[in-house]
Design a protein around this nucleic acid. Structure first.
Lengths: 109, 109
DNA sequence: TCATCATAACACCTAAAGGTGTCATTTTGC
DNA sequence: GCAAAATGACACCTTTAGGTGTTATGATGA
């Protein structure tokens, strides 16, 4: 019961710009839904759905305080994206990529 | 006419696992659609659509060689994701985050 | 206990994503 | 010039994501 089994993909979770804004918003402070939904032009229900996706991906944690539920950033799953990006570091260099393209173009035609 | 105006978001482009596989596949070598679609359990048309999304995001380049179009990785737009992730580096440290949570919990209740 | 407030849960709607199939276009090689 | 091969473009279908509204649940405070 340690980790809540990622159902929603982390990549999919951060695909939506609204959810990316939510993560930045929840980075500094813990917030209840009412406060969060005031920052976005949509219903509380819609905000709650987005929070549920983020929670499924393990990107936010929920904590009950009295009658309100507070959400907070949990950045650990972002490591998966970081690792994925690391694979492409070897292709990052513009000059190297350009050279490789040039060589193959030359040998093909 | 330098850059092809990103219509599809980069975050959205890498949200699909098929497209992520395509990027890895196209990292090493330039490939035509026929060869690419042999690597995925779907129609050439579907593969072409995914490639179109990647192309819109600037993540692949297309080059016509005779009657075939070859695709190749263009990793530059991934920098946007890297920058976005960099924002969360300050919240990365588990101990720091735990401490912050503890402090706020204490002061709240 | 009871009214109130915050959130969760439910049914529902609309638009877009992801997929297939078919046809048009262009290049190759004879 | 013409048949074959590779890709692009189009119409279409199905599923899901994102959204709203309403109702149910649970905690607060007089």
């Amino acid at each position: 019961m340690a980790e809540p089994a990622v159902r929603h993909d982390v990549f999919q979770a951060i695909a939506d710009p609204t959810r990316r804004s939510m993560l930045k918003l929840l980075a500094d402070k813990e917030m209840p839904i009412a406060a969060i939904s005031q920052c976005f032009p949509m219903t509380r229900t819609a905000v709650n759905k987005h929070l549920h996706v983020l929670s499924d991906a393990g990107l936010v944690s929920r904590r009950k305080v009295g009658r309100e539920t507070r959400y907070r950033l949990r950045p650990e799953p972002l490591a998966e994206i970081k690792e994925w990006l690391a694979f492409f570091d070897q292709y990052w260099d513009d000059r190297l990529a350009a050279l490789q393209r040039f060589v193959e173009t030359d040998s093909d035609e």
